[in-house]
Design a protein around this nucleic acid. Structure first.
Lengths: 204, 204
DNA sequence: TTTTATATTAACCATATGGTTAAACCAACC
DNA sequence: GGTTGGTTTAACCATATGGTTAATATAAAA
C-alpha cells in the first residue's frame, strides 16, 4: 500500500488537463495515463470508467470554486457591493483556473447532465435554493428602485456573460482582434471595464 | 447524374446538426450519413475526409452570417446606432442559427485553427482589416468623448459577451436558474436588456 | 440502343480505443 | 521469513470508427 499515494491525484490532474484541452469525446484514456506517468490500467483501477473519471474530475474542480462564489452571492446585501465584488472574484478565479473553465465550457454547449450532476453533488441542497435566493434578492433591489434591470434573470446573465465569455472565447477573440488576452494587464482592464459597465449600466 | 442533386446539401445540413450536437471529436460519420439518409461512402465521395467535411460545413455556415454583421459593424457611424443595432442583429441571428452557434462554440474553446481558417476563407481580406477598422472607429468615439470605455477591445468584448454567452451557455443556465431560455419572450427581453445596459453603461 | 461518366451501395479493412485480466510487486503485519 | 492485501504492469480483447473498394445503378450523350 501507499506505494505512491498521490497516484489518484496525479490522474485527476492529468484528467483535468486532457479533458479541458480536448473535451470529453476528444480525450484519450491512454493520453491521460501518459501525462500522469502511470499505466493505463490504473485509470480503471481507481475510476472504473472514462465517464466516471470525467465526473470525478469535474466534481473535484467544482468543489474548489463554490465556497468563494457562494459567500458573495448570498451574503452581499447591496447591489453596489454585488456588482463590484462578483466580477473581481469571478474573473480572478477564471484566470487562475483556465483548465477548469475550458472543461466546463465544453459542457456548457451540451453534456449538461454531467456538469449539472457534478455541481449538484458538490454544492448539495443549495444548488437549487441558492439561485432562487439570489434572484429574489435582485428582485427586491429592483422593487426598492436600486437597480434599473427589472428582470433578475437578465441581471444575472449580464454579469456572468461579461465575466466569463472572454475566457471561453479567448482563442477566437485573439485570432479576430489580433491581441493577447489573458495576461495580467488584460485581466486588470477586463475587471475594471466590467465593473464600470455593470455599475453605470444597471445601478440607478 | 443529378440522381439526387441535393445529396451534397443534405450532407452539409446533417453535418451541421451532428457537429453542433457532439463537437468534432464526438461526431460519428455514420450518424451523419444516417441523418442525411445516404450511404456513408457518399460522405467520402463528396468530402473526402471528416476534417474536410467539418471545414466545409463551417465555411458554409460562416458565409451566411458575415454580410449581415459586416454592414452594421462597418457602416454604422454613431455609437448609439452601433449599440442599438448590433445586439438585435447578433441575437436575432444566434436565435435562428443555434446549431451554427453551438458548432462554433465548440471551437471557441479550442480547434481555433479550423474556425479561423473558415472565417478567413469566407470573409476574405476583410478578415484582418475589418476588426482593425472597427477598433479604430471605437477609439475615435472615445476621443470625441462619445463613449466612456477607453479600450476599444473591451468595448467590443462587452458587446459580444452580452449577445452571445446566453446562447452558448443555454443548457447550463437553464439548469441553474430553472427557467427556459430561447423562447420568443426571452429573446425580446434579452435584446432589450443588452441594449439598455450597453447604452446606459457605455455611452456618455 | 449503346456508351459514358457520374452517383450510390454493400462489404470490407486497418487501426484506435475503452476496457479486462492475470500475473508481478511491494509494504506491512504475523 | 512467510503471508496478506492493496498497487502496478504488460499483454490482451472486443468493438467502434474513419476510410476504401469494387461492383452496380442511372441519367444523359452518342
Amino acid at each position: 500500500m501507499i506505494r505512491s499515494k498521490n497516484t489518484k491525484e496525479r490522474i485527476l490532474n492529468a484528467g483535468l488537463k486532457e479533458f479541458s484541452f480536448h473535451g470529453y469525446a476528444g480525450t484519450r484514456m491512454d493520453k491521460i495515463s501518459i501525462r500522469a506517468k502511470i499505466n493505463k490500467a490504473m485509470l480503471f483501477y481507481y475510476f472504473s470508467s472514462k465517464e466516471n473519471l470525467y465526473h470525478e474530475v469535474l466534481t473535484h474542480a467544482v468543489r474548489s470554486i463554490i465556497p468563494k462564489i457562494r459567500n458573495i452571492i448570498l451574503l452581499e446585501q447591496s447591489p453596489e457591493g454585488f456588482l463590484e465584488k462578483l466580477p473581481e472574484v469571478y474573473i480572478g478565479f477564471f484566470t487562475k483556473n483556465q483548465d477548469f473553465v475550458k472543461m466546463v465550457a465544453f459542457d456548457f454547449v451540451q453534456k449538461t447532465d454531467i456538469v449539472k450532476a457534478a455541481f449538484e453533488q458538490a454544492i448539495g441542497k443549495e444548488f437549487h435554493q441558492g439561485p432562487r435566493l439570489v434572484l429574489k434578492k435582485i428582485e427586491k433591489w429592483y422593487e426598492k428602485g436600486e437597480i434599473s434591470e427589472s428582470d433578475p434573470l437578465q441581471f444575472m446573465i449580464n454579469i456572468v456573460s461579461l465575466c466569463l465569455f472572454a475566457f471561453i472565447a479567448r482563442p477566437i477573440l485573439e485570432a479576430i482582434f489580433n491581441q493577447k488576452i489573458g495576461d495580467e494587464q488584460f485581466i486588470q482592464k477586463r475587471i475594471k471595464s466590467v465593473i464600470n459597465l455593470l455599475k453605470q449600466g444597471m445601478l440607478k
